[in-house]
C-alpha cells in the first residue's frame, strides 16, 4: 500500500505499486475475461456532475412548499371589508384579495411568500371554508406556533408535520424550510462519496497505462 501524494489527481499509487497491479492485471483472465483500464469518458464525467447538481436543484423544498395560514391571512382580514363586499362574483373578490395579499407579501420579511401564493391560488369558496380556522390561528389560537407554522389543507388548518430543529421551549420548529438538514446530510454524504471514489480510482494505475492482455493465461 505505497502512496504517492505529489500529484493526487493523476495517481495515488507509486510506480512499484502500479507496476504490480498491471502485472497482476496482465497475468490472469478470470473466466477467460479481461478488463480495460479506461477512464470515464469526459462527457460522462460532466454528466455525473450535472446529475449531482440536478439532484439538489430539482428536489429543493421550494417545489414542495405547502400553503400556510400566513399566506392567506391578509386575504381573510380583508374578505369582509366594504371593498370586497361590493364586488359581485367570487372570481372578482378573489382577484382583488390576491392582489392586496401580494402587496403585503412583497413587503414581508419572508421572501418566499409571493412565489408561494402564485403557486397556491385559492378560490373564494375555499377561502370562505378555511377562513374561520385561519382567523383562530391569527388570533393566537395556535399557542406558541404562529400562522406560518400552520398548513391550509382544504377547509382544515393544521399544524405542519415538519420535524424541524428543537426550540428553546422544547418543541420543534414547524415552518417548512427552504433548506433542511436532509440536504445538509446529502451535501456531506455526496462529498464523502466523491472523495472516496477519487481515492479508489486514483489508487489504480493511471488510465494511460493499458494492460497488455496478450500475456494473460
Amino acid at each position: 500500500m505505497a502512496w504517492k501524494m505529489d500529484n493526487p489527481l493523476y495517481c495515488l499509487a507509486d510506480e512499484e505499486e502500479a507496476r504490480k497491479a498491471l502485472e497482476l492485471w496482465e497475468s490472469e483472465k478470470p473466466g477467460g475475461l479481461w478488463e480495460g483500464n479506461n477512464r470515464l469518458p469526459y462527457p460522462l464525467t460532466w454528466l455525473i456532475a450535472l446529475i449531482i447538481l440536478t439532484a439538489f436543484m430539482i428536489t429543493m423544498p421550494i417545489w414542495g412548499q405547502r400553503p400556510t395560514a400566513e399566506l392567506y391571512a391578509p386575504m381573510v382580514e380583508l374578505m369582509d371589508s366594504p371593498e370586497v363586499q361590493k364586488l359581485a362574483t367570487g372570481p372578482e373578490k378573489i382577484a382583488y384579495l390576491t392582489e392586496r395579499a401580494m402587496e403585503v407579501h412583497r413587503n414581508a420579511e419572508d421572501s418566499r411568500l409571493p412565489g408561494l401564493l402564485d403557486r397556491h391560488p385559492i378560490s373564494w369558496e375555499d377561502l370562505q371554508l378555511a377562513a374561520p380556522g385561519i382567523r383562530e390561528i391569527v388570533a393566537g389560537g395556535g399557542g406558541t406556533y404562529g400562522p406560518e407554522s400552520y398548513n391550509v389543507i382544504g377547509d382544515q388548518v393544521v399544524l405542519a408535520n415538519f420535524s424541524g430543529s428543537w426550540r428553546p421551549d422544547g418543541k420543534r420548529e414547524r415552518v417548512q424550510p427552504w433548506w433542511d438538514k436532509g440536504y445538509t446530510i446529502d451535501v456531506f454524504y455526496v462529498s464523502y462519496f466523491i472523495i472516496a471514489m477519487v481515492i479508489v480510482c486514483k489508487r489504480l494505475p493511471h488510465f494511460s497505462q493499458k494492460p497488455d492482455m496478450s500475456k494473460a493465461s
Partner: peptide, 12 residues
Amino acid sequence: EWLKSFASVEGV
C-alpha cells in the same frame, strides 16, 4: 420532511 429531502436527492 428532512428524511424525504435526503431520500429525494439520493433518488436522483
